[in-house]
Deep mutational scan, measured.
Amino acid sequence: NQASVVANQLIPINTALTLVAMRSEVVTPVGIPAEDIPRLVSMQVNRAVPLGTTLMPDMVKGYA
């Protein structure tokens, strides 16, 4: 099972992602792969992401 990126805190809309804001977890459905965490740092989310939410490619500006 592949680990996905999960919000480690509430991430407000247009907030730049940080290492502290993300964690890796095996979840269903699978979201952005955990190995992409370094690439996600400083990218912005295009919606509010609640704690525990799996990050999907369409939630991160410039990711997809």
Rank of each mutant, 00 (worst) to 15 (best):
T28C: 11
V49D: 03
L55T: 01
P29D: 04
N1W: 12
Q2H: 11
P12L: 10
I32D: 02
S4R: 01
N46G: 07
Q44W: 14
P50Y: 09
A7K: 00
A48T: 15
D58Q: 14
A21E: 05
V45L: 06
N14L: 07
P50Q: 10
L19I: 08
I11V: 07
V5M: 01
R39Q: 10
A34R: 03
M59V: 05
L10R: 09
P12I: 05
V5K: 03
S4Y: 01
V49L: 07
K61F: 10
R47C: 11
P12K: 10
V49M: 01
A21M: 15
A64Q: 14
N14V: 04
L40M: 04
T18D: 06
E25G: 08
T28E: 15
E25P: 00
I11S: 01
M56N: 02
Q9R: 13
Q9K: 12
M59E: 02
N46L: 14
G52I: 00
V60M: 04
A7L: 05
T53N: 08
V41A: 04
L40C: 04
L40G: 00
N14I: 04
A7T: 11
L19T: 07
P38D: 11
A48R: 14
E25N: 07
L55G: 03
I13W: 08
G31R: 01
R23K: 11
I11W: 02
V27H: 02
S24L: 06
Q2G: 15
T54M: 02
P12G: 07
P33N: 08
M22P: 02
R47P: 04
V41W: 00
V26W: 11
E35A: 13
T18R: 08
E35H: 12
T53V: 12
M59D: 10
D58E: 13
P38N: 14
L19E: 09
V26G: 03
T18P: 03
R39A: 08
A16V: 11
P29T: 03
V30C: 14
P57Q: 07
N46D: 07
Q2V: 12
R23G: 09
Q44R: 13
M43E: 04
V6Q: 02
K61M: 13
L19Q: 07
G62D: 12
V6N: 03
G62R: 06
V20G: 14
L19V: 09
D36T: 07
A34Y: 06
V60N: 04
N46I: 13
V20E: 15
T54D: 03
I32P: 01
P29G: 02
N8W: 04
R47D: 05
V26S: 08
G62F: 08
M43I: 05
L19G: 05
D36S: 09
A3D: 06
T18A: 07
V49H: 02
T15S: 14
A7V: 10
R39L: 14
A34L: 03
N8I: 06
V5T: 04
I13N: 14
A34W: 06
N46Q: 09
R39H: 11
G52C: 04
I37H: 02
V5S: 01
A34G: 07
V27S: 03
L51E: 15
V30Y: 11
V49T: 03
S24D: 06
G31I: 02
V60F: 01
L40S: 00
N14T: 03
N46S: 12
V49G: 03
L55W: 00
I11L: 09
T53K: 09
T53C: 09
Q9W: 09
A21D: 13
V20Y: 13
P57L: 00
L55R: 00
Q9F: 14
I11K: 01
V30M: 15
E25V: 08
V30K: 10
E35L: 12
L19M: 13
P29I: 05
Q9E: 14
M56Q: 12
N14H: 13
G31S: 02
Q2T: 12
V20L: 14
G31V: 01
G62I: 03
Q44K: 13
N14E: 07
T15P: 04
T18I: 06
I32H: 00
P57H: 07
V45N: 02
P29A: 04
L19N: 06
V60I: 14
A7D: 01
R47I: 14
V27Q: 02
V5N: 00
M43K: 09
N1I: 15
K61E: 14
A16R: 12
A3L: 11
L10M: 12
P29F: 02
I32Y: 02
T15V: 09
R47S: 07
P12N: 08
L19D: 06
T15R: 07
A21F: 14
L17W: 00
T28L: 10
P50C: 09
T18W: 03
A48I: 14
T28N: 13
M59Y: 12
L19R: 10
D36Y: 13
M59I: 04
L10E: 14
S42K: 12
S42F: 08
I32S: 02
P57D: 05
L55A: 03
K61L: 10
M22W: 00
Q2C: 10
R23L: 05
V6I: 12
T18E: 08
A34M: 06
I13A: 14
N1K: 09
Y63Q: 05
M43R: 10
N14D: 14
I11T: 03
T53S: 12
P50E: 13
M43H: 08
N46H: 06
V45F: 00
R39K: 15
I13E: 15
L17M: 03
T54L: 03
L51D: 12
E35N: 10
Q9N: 08
A64F: 10
